[in-house]
């Protein structure tokens, strides 16, 4: 099956394409250009740095970042120092974490 192997996402990401970073920052929910769609697919499928998720604290108001353990029955790791007041802020933060984990280059805000 093609659809459950995190290592199968292999679209190459060009770390110099800061225009794509900007495009994502402007509109995290899209719609996105073809190029950004493929970059996002790589980041989301492979999820470098761990399989990030959000956990709702207050519906529609507050979320905390978490990481799936990759093992059934083990608890979700909660990163309590990372909370968000909007989904867009969370998307941007996770984008930066993954971009850096994959390209080795940090994105400054």
């Amino acid at each position: 099956m093609l659809n459950n192997d995190p290592d199968s996402a292999h679209y190459p990401i060009d770390a110099s394409r800061r225009d794509l970073v900007e495009e994502f920052r402007r509109a995290p929910k899209g719609p996105h250009s073809r190029e950004l769609q493929m970059v996002l697919h790589r980041l989301r499928w492979e999820s470098p740095g761990g399989r990030y998720v959000l956990v709702t604290v207050e519906p529609g108001k507050r979320w905390v970042l978490g990481r799936l353990p990759g093992v059934r029955g083990a608890p979700v790791e909660l990163m309590r120092n990372k909370t968000y007041e909007s989904l867009a802020a969370a998307e941007w933060d996770v984008f930066k974490l993954r971009w850096e984990a994959l390209t080795g280059q940090a994105i400054e805000d």
């Binding site: 929910k29 998720v53 956990v55 709702t56 989904l87 969370a90 996770v94």
Partner: peptide, 11 residues
């Protein structure tokens, strides 16, 4: 096309 949002039930 976005982060999964888990609930207490999911945890």
């Amino acid at each position: 096309e976005g982060l999964m949002v888990l609930s207490r039930d999911d945890l």
